[in-house]
Structures are given as structure tokens and as C-alpha cells.
């Protein structure tokens, strides 16, 4: 691959990796693991770069790799998730309200299956359509709907996540 490919890939990583890490954070609950996951997926994307010529295709492919890698890490038990009692990856300057919400969201998400967490991240953080989410997960739209409904029902029932909007800080 040539210098143009390198520059395009660099621009793609700079522009989109932060968004993908945030999505992976919802799946893993850990910024460090999310970064490893996205880095790993982007390496795979780079190896396919010559066939992924536009940002949408590259992003869709990378998200697919993120999800499949995340699920496979969980299967291999190489990924150790802690249903957290402490706030993960808390920045020192965080507002208290934001930190509490982050803690509670992480605790509530720990109750979900890997696929449900992936659906939540793609549908509700990244705001992908059901079709795009299905493509990223490699499943049918019906499965996305079912998984999303079950995940949301579990989150609503989670004692960790009080959904009073007053708790959503600005």
C-alpha cells in the first residue's frame, strides 16, 4: 500500500477512533480494554485497507471487527470484566454527577450479555440504525430488535440505574 493509503488510514484513525473507543467502553466498561479492542480492530482494518475506500465502509468494517473480537475475547475468557464497585477510568476532573452516572451505567451494563451490550453501544450510543447494527453484529434485524428490547428491559429493571433525568448532569 502506498503513501496515500497510509495518509488516508492515519486520517481515518484520527477522525474516528475516539468515537469507536467510546462505543467499546460501553461494551467493556474499561477504557484500557476498549482502546486495546479498537486498536486490534484497526490493525485488521489496515490489512484490508485497499478494499475499504471510503470512511463509511472502513468504519462499518472496523465496528464489525470490534464486536466480533469483543465477543470472542469474552468466550475465551481472556477478557476479565469486573462488575464494578469502583468507578472505572475516572478522570480527575469529572463532575461528581457524571462519575456517579458512569459508575451506575457500568454496573447496570455488567448484567447484560456481550451481544446485548454490543447492541446497546451501537444502537444507543453510536445511533446506528437497526440495519447497520445488524450488519455490525452479523445477525438479522429481528435479532437486533429482540436483543435491544431485552437489554433495555434489563437496564430499566437494574437497581443501579435510576433513570430519573435529574441524574443526567449537563
Amino acid at each position: 500500500m502506498g503513501e496515500d493509503d497510509l495518509e488516508e488510514f492515519r486520517a481515518f484513525v484520527m477522525a474516528r477512533s475516539a468515537s469507536m473507543i467510546r462505543s467499546a467502553w460501553l461494551m467493556t466498561g474499561s477504557e484500557a480494554t476498549a482502546q486495546d479492542l479498537v486498536q486490534s480492530a484497526l490493525l485488521t482494518t489496515w490489512q484490508r485497507w485497499s478494499t475499504l475506500r471510503d470512511q463509511k465502509a472502513a468504519e462499518a468494517y472496523t465496528r464489525r471487527v470490534v464486536v466480533t473480537t469483543y465477543v470472542s475475547w469474552r468466550r475465551r475468557r481472556a477478557f476479565h470484566e469486573r462488575p464494578t464497585q469502583t468507578v472505572p477510568d475516572l478522570a480527575a476532573d469529572d463532575l461528581v454527577g457524571r462519575a456517579e452516572l458512569r459508575h451506575d451505567v457500568a454496573a447496570a451494563l455488567a448484567l447484560l450479555s456481550p451481544r446485548q451490550r454490543a447492541v446497546i453501544a451501537l444502537r444507543y450510543l453510536d445511533q446506528l440504525t437497526e440495519a447497520e447494527t445488524a450488519a455490525a453484529l452479523g445477525c438479522s434485524i429481528g435479532t437486533v430488535k429482540t436483543q435491544a428490547a431485552r437489554a433495555i428491559a434489563r437496564l430499566r429493571a437494574s437497581p443501579a440505574l435510576d433513570l430519573d433525568p435529574r441524574r443526567v448532569p449537563r
Binding site: 488510514f9 475516539a18 477504557e31 486498536q39 451505567v105
Partner: peptide, 19 residues
């Protein structure tokens, strides 16, 4: 909106580290 607030802001990855 809830997830947008809850998920921390992060930096982009270093492309050269991946390459």
C-alpha cells in the same frame, strides 16, 4: 443522552502505533 454523558471522553489512537 444518558450514555453520551456517562461514557468518558477519550483521545484518538495513534495511527503510527497501529501501523
Amino acid at each position: 443522552e444518558i450514555f453520551e454523558v456517562a461514557v468518558p471522553a477519550v483521545s484518538p489512537l495513534d495511527p503510527d502505533l497501529i501501523l
